[in-house]
């Protein structure tokens, strides 16, 4: 039985690993160089990428975590909601919404964490030009989130990103029981956020139920990596996730209290 692929060409495994963001930057660069020169591998890569797009396109959108059977259904959980959906309820909803939009839009006020702690929380990876912040709505009040200020069940949060250049972003939470939640993006790859100060992400989260500490992760990458690469890295090593080159992260501890 003869092999069709020349030794110099890329295997499907190499291409799959590359597309999944599982190769080092050096290996990725070598592959990119090969693809530039080799029409056979370039075509194969295009075919696999198209197949991946079709596969992902056939799937339903990510199920909201509050659906029955979803992870985090017991214990403390944060619910991910689409932009604006039931973010504010009742007669004062419009006024509160306007207040939050103004609040989010004002540079220098939002909760980009500023205190680095010695207990391992409050970690900012070197080289990161981006940072994570969050605004909190509690009843009629909106305030700047910070690691020092405890959150409560029912608080609504909206994350913001500050960055000097465009960056691909994920926001995750890891609770004390080791349950990982994805707050952003609601897609299978990191999404791009343009350069700017405290830009609100489209998804909002609402605190639910139980109390305890939770680690918040802001992950900032130079390309639209698959979200699974980031979630697996955080699960493997929550203290120091082995993210691919080109990625940086921030980790903050927040405390959630009963209402």
């Amino acid at each position: 039985m003869t092999r069709r692929r020349s030794e110099a060409c890329l295997s499907d495994l190499q291409l799959d690993c590359w597309m999944a963001g599982e190769l080092s930057a050096e290996a990725g660069q070598a592959m990119a160089l090969h693809l530039e020169a080799c029409t056979i591998c370039r075509q194969r890569h295009a075919d696999l990428a198209e197949e991946q797009r079709r596969f992902a396109g056939d799937l339903p959108a990510c199920a909201p975590l509050e659906q029955p059977g979803a992870v985090g259904a017991s214990g403390l959980r944060w619910r991910v909601r689409p932009p604006g959906l039931r973010w504010f309820l009742g007669a004062s909803a419009l006024a509160a919404a306007a207040a939050l939009v103004l609040f989010v839009a004002r540079p220098g006020q939002l909760g980009t964490p500023s205190v680095l702690r010695s207990d391992g929380f409050g970690t900012r990876a070197k080289g990161s030009g981006a940072s994570l912040g969050w605004a909190v709505r509690r009843g009629e009040h909106v305030f700047t989130g910070s690691p020092e200020r405890a959150l409560r069940a029912g608080d609504a949060l909206r994350f913001t990103i500050s960055s000097r250049e465009p960056v691909y972003v994920a926001v995750l939470g890891l609770d004390a029981a080791g349950r990982l939640s994805v707050y952003h993006p609601n897609a299978d790859r990191l999404t791009r956020v343009e350069a700017g100060q405290q830009q609100p992400l489209p998804s909002a989260v609402e605190l639910d139920g139980t109390t305890g500490d939770e680690a918040l992760y802001g992950v900032f990458c130079s390309s639209a990596l698959p979200l699974s690469v980031v979630t697996l890295a955080v699960e493997r090593s929550p203290q120091d996730p082995p993210l691919p080159l080109g990625c940086a992260f921030e980790r903050w501890k927040v405390r959630k209290e009963a209402q």
């Binding site: 499907d12 799959d16 999944a20 696999l48 197949e51 991946q52 079709r54 596969f55 992902a56 799937l59 990510c62 199920a63 975590l65 979803a70 992870v71 080791g178 349950r179 990982l180 939640s181 994805v182 299978d188 790859r189 698959p226 979200l227 699974s228 690469v229 979630t231 697996l232 699960e235």
Partner: peptide, 22 residues
């Protein structure tokens, strides 16, 4: 260890390769 959200993401990002190979 894989959590369910991580597995869901893995399905989205790697499922195509599994299906193709199968």
């Amino acid at each position: 260890m894989l959590t369910r959200p991580a597995l869901e993401q893995l399905y989205r990002s790697h499922g195509s390769a599994v299906l193709r190979r199968a």
